[in-house]
């Protein structure tokens, strides 16, 4: 079985985000970029499935600018066998990403597509679900445990009420949650080996995919600065302060 893992290049989670003065987005020039942490968890899960003897090949996919190949190299250094770079200069929407992954799934015929439940840049959390619909295959989202059993997968999901375990027929789409696993450290010799692994570059046109129109970011703004708290001496003072402010 082949596994396909999609990885997105995002601003590193340690970076303090700054909004561009014109509100057109966030500053990415000179900012550290990394693989979306949820995608890293998806990659790690794929590696564990392969190491357990349940898959033969892992294909890492990214959709984005030329530099997104850095994240593919990281995926290859983690242990992916080969990579596909769908080169796109503009920001893409979840539906476009889902269409691209559907086209690649048709071509590669993976037994499972794994991806993060959301990317930490725009937090849309839609691509996996849209892919499952377009591909007409089952989906197991927010996975915190994945067990393979022949042509089925048992997936434990983190839902509001607790944990839910579902069974899906393969091929299926699995989106990964934070507690599924802890991604490995990339080993230094594997970084050198990753240099020799192939990255195929393709485009939306090559895949016959049309970019989805629809969403347009009209403004990006930082959250309002929080005002400092105020200490009061007694409960009475607290009540009267809240009343004065019209909060109770």
């Amino acid at each position: 079985m082949k596994l396909m893992v999609s990885v997105k290049r995002v601003v590193d989670y340690n970076v303090r985000i700054q909004v561009k003065p014109d509100g057109s987005g966030v500053v990415t020039d000179g900012v550290k970029m990394s693989m979306n942490p949820f995608d890293e968890i998806a990659m790690e899960e794929a590696l564990r499935i392969k190491e357990a003897g349940n898959a033969e090949e892992i294909i890492a996919v990214t959709i984005g600018e030329q530099k997104a190949q850095e994240q593919l190299r990281t995926a290859l250094a983690m242990g992916a066998d080969r990579a596909i770079h769908v080169e796109v200069d503009e920001d893409i929407q979840p539906l476009t990403a889902a269409r691209v992954l559907k086209a690649l799934a048709d071509k590669e015929q993976p037994g499972m597509v794994l991806l993060g439940k959301q990317a930490i840049d725009d937090d849309q959390g839609q691509t996996g679900q849209m892919l499952a619909a377009l591909w007409d295959r089952p989906q197991a989202t927010f996975a915190s445990k994945v067990d393979l059993d022949g042509q089925k997968a048992k997936v434990t999901r983190e839902v509001d009420a607790g944990l839910e375990t579902i069974e899906v027929d393969l091929p299926a789409v699995v989106t990964t949650d934070l507690r599924l696993n802890e991604p490995r450290y990339v080993k230094l010799p594997d970084i050198m080996k990753a240099k020799k692994k192939p990255i195929d570059t393709t485009s939306l046109a090559d895949l016959g995919v049309e970019a989805a129109p629809g969403l347009k970011v009209t403004n990006t703004a930082p959250p309002p600065e929080r005002q400092g708290g105020k200490k009061v001496e007694s409960v009475d003072e607290l009540v009267s302060e809240l009343k004065n402010r019209g909060l109770i």
Binding site: S34, E70, T74, A77, Y185, V186, K187, L188, I191, M192
Partner: peptide, 26 residues
């Protein structure tokens, strides 16, 4: 450690190569 000299051919450049950068991150 293997030879992973910087991105530039200049004799002294501190820009890490892609491999050096990945090593550092790890």
């Amino acid at each position: 450690m293997s030879n992973t000299s910087g991105a530039s051919k200049l004799p002294f450049d501190l820009t890490p190569s892609e491999e050096q950068q990945m090593m550092r991150e790890s």
